[in-house]
Structure formats: structure tokens, C-alpha cells
């Protein structure tokens, strides 16, 4: 499953980060690397972007970009 499919309050562990160029590099630089635990905290009032919690800080990304981040099956989700 991918990161955008999580509901607020659910978490997972990153398996793979897709995308390309500036977007992908930025996702990696911000700490969205494989094996990192991520929780979805909330969804913005208009339904997008989403608020993530990882590496003890809060990050916001858009759903379409979150869809490029694949999570490990059967780990973390609460």
C-alpha cells in the first residue's frame, strides 16, 4: 500500500520512495527514506495536503506525492 492510503492516526514503515528529480530528492532529504516509520496526523481542511509525523518532526506533503511512497506490508498500521 502507499502512504496516501493511510487514515489520520495510522502509521507505516517506508519501503520505497518513487517520483523523480527535485520532488524525489526533497522527499529523501526531508528524511522519508526506506525503513523510516511515518504516521499520518491529519488531512488539511480541504482534503489535501496531509500532515505527517516522522523523525520527531511534522512534515506536510500532497496526497499525489504521498502516493509515490510505498509502505511495507503488514507493519506499523494501527
Amino acid at each position: 500500500m502507499t502512504l496516501d492510503e493511510l487514515k489520520p492516526g495510522q502509521g507505516g514503515v517506508i519501503e520505497f520512495v518513487g517520483g523523480e528529480g527535485a520532488l524525489r530528492r526533497r522527499l529523501l532529504d526531508m528524511g522519508l527514506t526506506p525503513n523510516t516509520a511515518v504516521t499520518v496526523r491529519k488531512v488539511a481542511p480541504m482534503g489535501d495536503p496531509i500532515e505527517l509525523f516522522l523523525r520527531s518532526y511534522v512534515l506536510t506533503i500532497r496526497k499525489e506525492d504521498a502516493a509515490k511512497i510505498r509502505l511495507k506490508e503488514g507493519e506499523g498500521k494501527r
Binding site: 495536503p49 500532515e51 511534522v58 512534515l59 500532497r62
Partner: peptide, 9 residues
């Protein structure tokens, strides 16, 4: 543009 932004405390 890619929108990847920190929400600081």
C-alpha cells in the same frame, strides 16, 4: 511545484 514543507512547532 512539489509541496514538501515542514510544519515547525
Amino acid at each position: 511545484v512539489p509541496f514538501v514543507m515542514e510544519l515547525p512547532a
